[in-house]
């Protein structure tokens, strides 16, 4: 039996991860800890797990690993506590709000000799995996340009409180497509130019980014919370167009959907039938905890994406392109 705990239910994805855990044989969602007792008890009840009043109580449940779904700025401390307790960690994205914090997490995992995974579920998207396969087969040749979107609705709550989130749409949505591009292009981002605008509150709602990769590929990303929250048929999108020497590849990762136009809901609702990416992520985490394989996506991938976000915010502040400062690391072992 593999026993997993959920460390904070601040992020909405906790519910999806719990559902994915329930569907796996030989896996138990053992406990839920949340520093906000009311939210934690409600989450534990609805997810069918025991509520733990402290991290120590959670760790005492005999866990193999935890899924950290806390607010962005808390990821580092939470992950370090779990790793030091000898647990494997799957951490919600972004891995941290500052490169120094992400680097400390990667080092804590190495010290503890426990796996640290970043929750980048796009790695488990069947269409995106197909795109990577085509790329590796050489179907496109070198990629000259890439265009990406990861648009969504404004999630509100702590996401728009910079003290907890570290930033708005640029913090929330840059990392997914940056990770997908690094994975498909097998290249690192060299520099970033970013523009952002805030429609409400203290954080930006909209961001447009231009990247230059080390090998020359120019890429763009729209990471805006630009989808209307009430009337839009789904949460948002992940799309990518690759302009290659040998051809073009267009990917819409959530294109596999039917539509339901509901008089009761008074809107159209996207009914996805794509393979469940969260289920793929969770199955991978469980296999890693069982030492059956190495993770598809680890803490270093999370760190690299945070370093790009950091450059984006430096660019926004200076209104100039910013160089990505990549921490030097030993080789992955």
């Amino acid at each position: 039996m593999t026993r997993i705990g959920i460390y904070s239910s601040a992020h909405l994805h906790a519910g999806a991860y719990a559902a994915a855990l329930r569907a796996l044989p030989g896996v138990e969602l053992t406990g839920v800890y949340d520093p906000e007792a009311k939210r934690g008890k409600a989450a534990a009840k609805s997810l069918g797990a025991r509520y733990a009043a402290s991290p120590e109580q959670l760790f005492d449940l005999g866990l193999d690993g935890v899924i950290i779904c806390s607010e962005n700025v808390r990821h580092r401390g939470d992950a370090e506590r779990a790793l030091d307790a000898g647990l494997g960690v799957l951490c919600e994205k972004p891995l941290a709000t500052k490169p120094a914090d992400a680097l400390a997490m990667v080092r804590a995992a190495a010290r503890a000799r426990r796996p640290l995974m970043t929750a980048f579920p796009c790695r488990y998207s069947t269409p995106l995996r197909e795109a990577r396969r085509l790329m590796r087969e050489g179907a496109l040749g070198a990629v000259l340009a890439a265009q990406g979107t990861n648009r969504g609705t404004n999630p509100g709550g702590w996401f728009v409180d910079p003290e907890l989130s570290g930033g708005g749409a640029v913090m929330d949505h840059t990392v997914h497509v940056v990770d997908v591009l690094r994975w498909i292009l097998e290249d690192e981002v060299a520099s970033v130019y970013a523009e952002a605008t805030g429609a409400s509150g203290e954080v930006e709602d909209h961001g447009l980014l231009l990247f230059r990769f080390e090998q020359g590929t120019g890429a763009s990303l729209d990471c805006s919370w630009s989808r209307p929250g009430q009337s839009f048929p789904t949460w948002g999108d992940v799309t990518l167009s690759l302009i290659g020497e040998q051809g073009n590849l267009h990917i819409d990762a959530f294109r596999q959907h039917a539509m339901l136009y509901s008089e009761r809901a008074k809107k159209g609702i996207q009914v996805d039938f794509a393979d469940d990416i969260n289920a793929g992520l969770i199955a991978d985490f469980v296999a890693v905890l069982r030492e059956e394989k190495i993770p598809e996506v680890d803490g270093i991938d999370g760190l690299r994406a945070v370093e790009v976000v950091d450059a984006a915010y430096r660019s926004i502040a200076s209104a100039r392109a910013a160089t990505v400062r990549r921490a030097a690391l030993g080789s992955r072992s």
Binding site: P127, E130, A131, L134, A139, G247, N248, L249, H250, I251, D252, A253, F254, R255, Q256, H257, A258, M259, L260, Y261, S262, E263, R264, V271, A274
Partner: peptide
């Protein structure tokens, strides 16, 4: 309400 799906419109990859 109304339900519908369309292929190939829902193909997520298009390689040219």
């Amino acid at each position: 309400g109304l339900l519908r799906f369309e292929m190939p419109e829902t193909k997520p990859l298009r390689f040219v």
